[in-house]
Write a protein that binds this DNA or RNA. Structure first.
Lengths: 229, 229
DNA sequence: CCTCTAATTATTGTATGCAATATCTGGATG
DNA sequence: CATCCAGATATTGCATACAATAATTAGAGG
């Protein structure tokens, strides 16, 4: 993987906060005090600051000068931008995969589907959510393009953050057999169908997130108090 | 623009090193000692470290634990990955622009062409290089997608870094009337032509960079001594 | 009882200092 | 002459300390 041999302190903090956010222990809008994090990880504030700066570059954390950092709380515009970007990228990815028609890639994706099914049947909700997201990463991975993959991971992280933060059930959008159908289209080299499905798929997720974001503003929601005027 | 009101120290260092790299004062492979940078900017090493960490996240700087930072020196694989990614993204961008056929966008691009011509005629090499790169950023800008634009900028920065680092004349690849033709295709909504031109265009730049990278390894080159075995 | 202001407290931004690791130098040995 | 090893030097990694800014609270005035 992309693991480093020697784990430096700031990387540990970075990973820790990253995981905490993706595991929803830390939710959007939450304040990230340097002192508390430093104590939590048993490191100095210096390291915490560096880690937070990096997380800010990833878009997971927002900082205001002299006011500290907090987990990003996305606006509707940001959500829309993010998914428009995902559509653009993922269309590019499936287009290329359709062109290549590499059976080892599609087999790998099929193997992944088995895991999804298994998690679904065994009722392992947590794992299923993780795997559904992982599928999209696997798509990117199959291009063997580290530059794209690196960034795409961050993109997915942000999307997951938004989804996880706003709604516990938005993964429902990744439902049915859409992943399977996408694989079949790729195997058949059916570009236009694969593209259309990808768009539909992502539109579904985007809509789910935007809907919850809307109720978050008008109706009641556990995170309502975090919304800024 | 994306300027911050209150410029913090680490941002100043970040900007400074960033500019230095893009202006080629700092070249790939060069060591970035913390102490010297700290003295140069009249700040503490702490701030320098934070800035370097961010530049590493951008891919402009490479750091090895306990061995410090240096300006990134790309491998052939990285160059290829980067340009494959650019093709993917820029194809997506021009496809969307062809779909929209927004005259205000194309007019804006045409205005930019005038600047390029002017710089070309007046023999302002430096400015021309800058504008040629800026054209691609303007393409991304016209989608009004901050998420995509943010990352695309970084991508272009890396490409420029590689180009600028390896070859002073690789901008020649952005030659002829390719930018103009692209605009015309977009105006006409000719997707396939626009896509093909984009690929050709990027392939040209990539090839130029790879070629110089090759001579950098086999033949003589001012940066040869920086190459690692 | 509310509001505005000033002092206090808490938190962030930056610099300095110390320990750990790497790099360099000089000399002894084959 | 080249190579290897030990001491010295320089550089990085991290934590602590101090300065600057924001948040909070207490009190006076309306």
């Amino acid at each position: 993987m992309t693991e480093k041999k020697l784990e430096t302190t700031v990387d540990r903090v970075y990973q820790g906060v990253y995981e905490a956010i993706s595991k929803r222990s830390l939710r959007p809008g939450m304040k990230l005090g340097e002192a508390s994090l430093a104590e939590l990880f048993n490191v100095s504030r210096t390291s915490v600051r560096a880690a937070l700066k990096q997380l800010e570059a990833d878009g997971l954390v927002t900082t205001e000068p002299n006011k500290g950092a907090s987990v990003s709380l996305p606006s509707d515009e940001e959500i829309r931008s993010l998914f428009e970007t995902r559509r653009l990228i993922e269309i590019g990815i499936v287009t290329e995969l359709c062109r290549r028609r590499d059976t080892s890639v599609t087999q790998d994706l099929r193997d992944h589907l088995l895991l999804e099914d298994e998690a679904h049947r065994s009722g392992d909700h947590e794992r299923l959510i993780h795997l559904l997201g992982e599928f999209h990463i696997k798509l990117a991975q199959s291009l063997n393009n580290p530059v794209l993959l690196d960034w795409f991971r961050k993109l997915i992280s942000r999307a997951s953050l938004y989804a996880a933060a706003l709604d516990d059930d938005s993964h429902e959008a990744c439902r049915d057999d859409e992943h399977l159908r996408l694989i079949e289209y790729i195997e058949a080299g059916n570009q236009s169908a694969a593209i259309e499905l990808t768009c539909m798929h992502l539109n579904g997720i985007e809509k789910a997130i935007l809907d919850v974001a809307a109720t978050l503003k008008t109706g009641y929601h556990p995170l309502k108090h975090l919304i800024e005027v």
